[in-house]
């Protein structure tokens, strides 16, 4: 089921088009990656989804009906540029922000204490925010985003400023939220985390969606038919019409080849052809990383321009 959908959303800022007929579909209880280079329009789209700004044209559907003001309480948004009141005590401002999201003061306090304990920052409750390290501030901000248990969570670059240990902690929290049935929009440049976390993605470049769909499907679609094989023999005997050797090397045991399949046959047929003349130790197709796909797609749109 589609949880949230934008239809042909257009947003124009004085002089430039920030979003050009952007349509995305965010499936329920999945992690949706919103990718794109800087200035592509990701933040604008998020601001439209969170109703901070209104689209010029197009509409946003929330559970198949137009997004309404009350819906923003079902959304938790962690902005990329984040900030809190520096001079205000951590606990006090967490309660304030939670109350703005519709919790009562006592409810807010109770939930916050639990989260603070979980993240091991309870002892900082009565400290001013400026006394906290950047990582701790990020934790506070994350807690505030999820405190009202919204159905939809939007994380804009959630891992920036975190050390590897805390990144892992946060990643697990996000996956746990998904298990609890939340729908998550995840905007990032970190492609490794996209492969780990996201189910579906949309790649926005130059105000347009240039690529979208299931992560595994996209990676399959972008396969270059390149294979890594290990053999016992120094030379790979293969018909040139069948494949082309891109590079070769050796390690202490085997010879390594990177080859490109040139004919339109299934992988097992291709392998059996190779097996005829060679002693194959291992055979593996290269699946392109999201990073490669990202760079490839963005470069392609730039060339087209």
């Amino acid at each position: 089921m589609i949880f949230l959908e934008t239809k042909e959303v257009v947003k124009q800022y004085s002089g430039h088009l920030a979003l050009d007929k952007v349509s995305v579909q965010i499936p329920e209880q999945k992690v949706f990656g919103l990718l794109g280079p800087n200035g592509a329009g990701k933040t604008t789209l998020i601001r439209i989804i969170t109703r901070i700004t209104a689209p010029d044209y197009g509409e946003v559907l929330f559970k198949n009906r137009p997004l309404a003001y009350e819906d923003i309480f079902k959304i938790g948004y962690l902005p990329e540029e984040r900030g809190l009141y520096k001079k205000m005590k951590v606990g006090e401002q967490a309660v304030y922000l939670a109350r703005l999201k519709g919790l009562t003061a006592s409810e807010a306090k109770e939930r916050l204490k639990k989260w603070f304990e979980k993240f091991d920052i309870l002892s900082w409750w009565d400290k001013k925010l400026e006394e906290l390290s950047k990582g701790m501030q990020q934790k506070v901000q994350f807690i505030i985003t999820v405190i009202h248990e919204p159905e939809l969570l939007i994380f804009d670059e959630p891992f920036s400023g975190f050390d590897p240990i805390n990144t892992e902690l946060l990643k697990n929290e996000i996956l746990q939220l998904k298990e609890q049935g939340k729908t998550i929009i995840f905007s990032t440049h970190n492609m490794a985390s996209v492969e780990e976390i996201c189910d579906e993605i949309a790649l926005i470049d130059k105000s347009k969606v240039v690529l979208s769909g299931d992560v595994n499907q996209i990676r399959d679609d972008h396969k270059q038919h390149i294979f890594k094989i290990r053999t016992e023999n120094e030379n790979l005997i293969a018909n040139e019409a069948l494949c082309e050797i891109l590079s070769q090397g050796e390690d202490s045991r085997n010879y390594l080849f990177r080859i490109k399949k040139n004919v339109d046959i299934s992988n097992s047929e291709f392998l059996s052809n190779l097996l005829k003349n060679n002693e194959i130790v291992s055979f593996e197709e290269e699946i392109p990383s999201m990073n490669d796909i990202f760079i490839q797609t963005v470069n392609k749109t730039q060339v087209n321009k």
Binding site: R51, I75, P79, R82, G83, L84, Y85, L100, K101, G102
Partner: peptide
């Protein structure tokens, strides 16, 4: 100005 430059406003404006 504090709310703007500290970017608190983005957090708040998504609920108020």
């Amino acid at each position: 100005m504090e709310e703007k430059t500290n970017r608190i406003v983005e957090v708040i404006v998504s609920s108020v």
